[in-house]
């Protein structure tokens, strides 16, 4: 799943380790999410969204059009 986590993190001048500390996950977790190797669970996605003050959909993009998916 595509996401803008790296952009949001660098915008704030945080390292991966710093972000990992704030989310209480490993640095490897942050790296795996940023590179799209790992899709976070809903609770972790919410925690990320809360930390950056955004909605989940603003950060993560599954590539599907919501209108098309509703049909």
């Amino acid at each position: 799943m595509k996401n803008i986590l790296r952009a949001l993190r660098t915008e704030r001048g945080w390292s991966q380790a710093e972000l990992a500390d704030r989310l209480d996950v490993s640095r490897q977790s942050v790296n795996a999410i940023e590179t799209g190797k790992y899709d976070p669970s809903l609770p972790l996605a919410f925690a990320i969204a809360r930390l950056f003050g955004r909605g989940i959909e603003d950060i993560f993009d599954d590539g599907l059009d919501a209108a098309a998916a509703a049909e």
Partner: peptide
């Protein structure tokens, strides 16, 4: 007890 990605690994 650890985070989900570490647990999965």
């Amino acid at each position: 007890e650890t985070d989900e990605y570490t647990r999965a690994r």
